[in-house]
Computed example of a mutant assay.
Amino acid sequence: MIVLSDLLVDFSTSTQSLGALQEAAYRLIGQAACQIDEAAGRFVCRLTPSQQQLQGDELRVHFLNLVTDENLREKVGRETDRLRDVIVALAFGSLTEGE
């Protein structure tokens, strides 16, 4: 019998967004459960593998890669917000001109 053990990964609340951690945790569904707690200025993520395929360092690396990906998605979203607003405004503006 193989015992799957929990793994803790923690992040500073001053440098890591909760949203990115939640998105990464969501993407882990099927591979591990992730409980996120906040304590003493840290987000503590408890990863509980749900299968034997990802354990220990492999699970940690996979989770960190997902968090990195979500951080990049947030950054790109922030950087393109204005452009997206302009595109939407232009699109809706052109629709009303035809009336």
Rank of each mutant, 00 (worst) to 15 (best):
V44N: 08
A32I: 07
A89Y: 10
R73V: 14
E38K: 15
L64Y: 05
E23R: 15
E99S: 13
Y26W: 09
L47S: 08
R73Y: 02
D37V: 09
E58Y: 05
G93W: 06
A24K: 10
A89N: 13
S94V: 04
F43M: 04
L28P: 00
T48D: 03
L66E: 04
R84K: 13
D37E: 12
F11M: 03
D6W: 03
G30M: 03
E23F: 06
R73H: 10
A33P: 02
L28A: 08
G93M: 06
S5I: 09
G98N: 07
G19W: 00
S14W: 04
L59V: 09
P49W: 04
S50D: 04
R46Q: 13
L7K: 14
G77M: 00
Q22M: 12
M1W: 01
R46T: 15
V88T: 15
S5M: 12
F11C: 00
G41K: 12
L64N: 14
G93F: 05
Q51P: 02
D10I: 02
S5W: 05
S5V: 12
I29V: 13
Q51E: 03
L21S: 10
Q51Y: 01
K75H: 06
L95W: 06
I29G: 08
Q16D: 02
V3P: 08
A24N: 08
E23L: 11
V3K: 15
Q16W: 01
E38C: 11
D37Y: 07
V67D: 04
L54V: 01
L72F: 08
G56E: 04
V61K: 15
V76D: 02
A39K: 15
F63L: 11
I29F: 07
V61G: 01
D81I: 02
E79M: 06
S12H: 09
H62P: 04
E58K: 14
N65W: 05
L7N: 00
I29T: 14
L28K: 12
A32P: 13
L90A: 01
A89V: 06
L18M: 07
Q35G: 07
H62R: 15
Y26G: 15
L7G: 00
G41F: 04
N71D: 10
L8V: 09
D6A: 14
G19Y: 04
L90E: 06
V76G: 01
G56I: 05
V3N: 11
V67C: 09
V61H: 14
A40T: 06
A20R: 11
L18G: 03
Y26S: 15
S50V: 08
L18C: 07
E99Q: 12
E70P: 01
D57N: 14
T80S: 00
H62C: 10
F92H: 15
Q55F: 01
E23G: 07
D69F: 03
P49F: 07
R42A: 07
G77K: 03
S94W: 04
D37F: 05
G98I: 13
G19N: 11
T68Q: 14
D37Q: 14
R46V: 06
E97G: 09
G30N: 06
L72K: 08
L8E: 13
A89L: 12
T68H: 12
T68P: 00
Q31P: 01
V76W: 00
Y26Q: 14
L7V: 12
S94L: 13
R84F: 00
D57G: 11
A25F: 02
V86M: 09
Y26V: 11
R82E: 02
D6S: 15
F63V: 09
L83D: 01
P49M: 10
Q22E: 12
Q35Y: 05
V61D: 01
C34T: 11
C34G: 10
R73W: 03
